[in-house]
Structures are given as structure tokens and as C-alpha cells.
Design a protein around this nucleic acid. Sequence first.
DNA 1: GAGTGGTCTAGACCACTTG
DNA 2: AAGTGGTCTAGACCACTCA
Lengths: 246, 246
Amino acid sequence: MSSPPPLQSAKATNHPLHEQIRASIERKILTGALKPGDRIPFEHELMESFDCSRMTVSKALAGLVSKGLVVRRRRAGSFVAHPPSASTLLDVPDIQADIQGRGLDYAYQLLSRRLRAPLASRREECELAKGGQLLDLTCLHVAGGTPFAYESRLISLETVPDARMADFSVSPPGTWLLDHVPWSQAQHRISAAASDARLSKLLDVSIGAPCLVLERTTWHGNRPVTQVRQTFPGERHAFLGAFSHT
Amino acid sequence: MSSPPPLQSAKATNHPLHEQIRASIERKILTGALKPGDRIPFEHELMESFDCSRMTVSKALAGLVSKGLVVRRRRAGSFVAHPPSASTLLDVPDIQADIQGRGLDYAYQLLSRRLRAPLASRREECELAKGGQLLDLTCLHVAGGTPFAYESRLISLETVPDARMADFSVSPPGTWLLDHVPWSQAQHRISAAASDARLSKLLDVSIGAPCLVLERTTWHGNRPVTQVRQTFPGERHAFLGAFSHT
DNA sequence: GAGTGGTCTAGACCACTTG
DNA sequence: AAGTGGTCTAGACCACTCA
């Protein structure tokens, strides 16, 4: 005889089981324990681990898919997704991919590279450094021969020690970071500013010309990764986004 | 005797059933057949309508919840969600709510109001009008005594005939539209421009000062609703957004 | 107190990919 | 060919909430 319905034994917390499973996997992804491309245990393995039915596991994974953290392929399994490299207003844009996506030649120029401590007077630099050092970079992105954006970036070597050895004279730091930091959250700020003398020379615009300024801080899990300020000639560039109330 | 497993009778399309159900309800919401606050049939009603199990109906509704189109309340039922009025970079922002949310006084001034046909030379105006007339408005938003944004807006009277009678001398058209058009999609464009003489006077900035320009076209279902261009003093304003790869 | 949605199960068949 | 995820069922208990 079959025992009566299992009675949902040991519902330790008040969170539903599928959320616990989702959170458990999500944590592993966000902390980097599971990196992009890594395989996630099969459904039947998770069924055993969490002692639940397949539908429950499936619901948990479906949540991760809808967040874009996981991709699932029949017969192959489930894997941690690669961060999208496409550029929209919402994503962390990769300027190189963006320019090449428009069919333009991309060129890049490293203007300066400096290893330094955070300025004690700048609170956000200290938070970024987290006690370590900062890599301070400035560079120029060029699209089809025309200056596209000036970029000033700080990278926290405490969070991304590998950046110290990376060769940013060839490929831009943004692209490198997208490839080497598994997942991120970002805080954006878009404003407008007038071009000063130095910027005007770099971007080939007149002094005082309106520019779009994008400032972004990026985290990996709860560790700060990088802080970047990109300046675009305002009449040559725009941010696009198609949104539904979704 | 019970018949053998129902064999998924009549799988007309190759879309899964839960997606068909979701699409069916989503369509009703996007076309306005179901308006915000309207009740969605109970799960057991949908089970009968679509002749399927409750889990399948539940999956369909869960999809709509995750899109923010539907809210569900125990014992009460499922309802079409009200569009969010909060303002982020992704949403359709309501300037009035935005300013008041910062604890500043909000003032509003209607500068002009004109009923007119679309200019045949401007393709986007003709698409917006869809054969009807346009309401052409310009106005100024003021926050705490300081000019905040200049707005130039076109409303398609073909899609929103009620706008003809609305009193935009009191409340701004953006707020009115958010309250009267049930759901929308939007296309945004953010750029920077220099302030001209007229704008400088209105916004109280110097001529040539950098300004943030937000252009947005909004649709209700597949009908164009409105097209707006808002200009912000660039050093006084910024667009913020916190994003995760979600 | 009754009915809603929230969650879960233990099966099943199917479609797809390649382990 | 085998094994994965995708979908679906016909039940069940529960928590919540509102008439």
C-alpha cells in the first residue's frame, strides 16, 4: 500500500521550495561559484538533492531562464548563460560590439594607464577599491575613423586581480571585463555636459558642444568591479531603447 | 473504464498550450479589451475554456504576472495590473510624479495647444495620426520654482479621441495619458543638444548650454498614441537606472 | 466559512539533440 | 538510441482573504 500523501514534510522556512532551489543556484551564479558556460545539475539530480518532484525543479530553473541567468538545451543540459554582449539602454553596452554591429570599423586607443590607490577624498573610489588598488585607464573609441567616445575608467583590482596583467593597449577594458567577469549588476546615470578644451580635441567637436555622459558602476555579486564615465558627442550619438511595460 | 491518456488532443499549432492561453489573455490586455483592474476569468473557468489542467492555466497566468501585466490575489481572483506610475529609465516616466516624489513643488504651464493635421512631409506625424488629426501641445514643467523640462507633444486623436476634450491647462498631458490609456509600449531615444535662444529663455539657461533630449513614441497595442520630446537642462538633470542582467 | 490562488506530486508522452 | 528538457495531467493540501 502506498503511504498517504507525503504531507510536504519539513517545510523549514516559509519560502516555497522552488524559490529556495532557485535562490540556491542563483547564489552560486552571482558569487561566481558557477561561471558562464558551467553546467547546472540535471533535473533528476536536483530532484534527489532537494527531494522533490521534477515539476518543482523545473519551476525553479524556469525562473532562472526568465531572468536570463540560465540557458537550457534538450539532451545537453542546463548551463549558466553568458552575459549578453548586445547593447541596449538597459544592458551594459560593449562599445566595440556596438560599433561593429553597425558595420563600422572599430579602432581603439589607450590614452593612459596608471596603477594607483584610491583618493581618500573620493568616497566612491574608496568603496570601489575595497582596500586594494585601482587601475585607472583612459581611452578613446573610434568608429569608422570618427571619434566615438572618450572613456575614463577605474577597475577594482581587489575584485578583478587579473586586470593588472591584462593588455589594454589592444582590446578595450570594457570588452575584456565582459569576457572575464561572470555576471554583473549596474547602476547607470545619463546626463549632458558641455565639451571642454581637452575633450573637444579628442572628440573633434567644438568647445562647449553638448555631449552625452554615461556614468556606470558595475558590481559582481556585491563586490564593486568598475566605474566608467563615457562621453559621446551629443549630436552624433543617442541611446535607444524599446520598452514595454514588462 | 477511463480512456487512455488524453493524448493532447488537437494540438493545432506547435505552440505549447500554456503559451496560447497566455497569448490569448495578453492580446485582450494589449488591445484594451481588458482594462486595468478588470478581472481575469478564474483558473477553473480557464480550465474549462481551454480544456486543460489547472497547472497549465497557472503557468500561463504566471507568465503574465512576471511580465507585470497581471496581479493575482488569493480569494479575490486575478486582475489586469495597473501600469506602473513610477519613473525609471525603463518606464514611461511621469514628470509630475517624479518631481513630487523628490519632495519638490510641481508647477506646470501649458504654452500652446493646437488641433492640426499631420504635416505630409513628416512621415512620423502621418503614422501617428493614422488618418485622423493631431493634438499639438507644448508645455513647461517646473520643479521647486526652477524650470525642469520643456515638452513638445503630439497626441493621436484617432487613437485617443478623449484627449480632444481633456483640459491640459491644469494637469500635464503625460499624466493624463498614463491615467487614460490602459497599456503601452514605448521607444525611447536619449541624446544631447545645445540650447537655442527660445529654449534658453524658457529653461533659464545660457544659450548653447548642453541639454538632455528625451524623445519617446508610445503605442497602445499596435496603435500609436503619442510622440513627445522633452528637453532638460543637462547639468540639472540626469536619467538614472539600476540594472541587473535580468 | 468558503473559495481563491500557491504549491506540490508522481506519474506520462513528446521533441529534440547528440552525451 | 538514449537521455535530456518541455509539456501536461489529475489529483492533493495549504494559506490567505474576503464576502
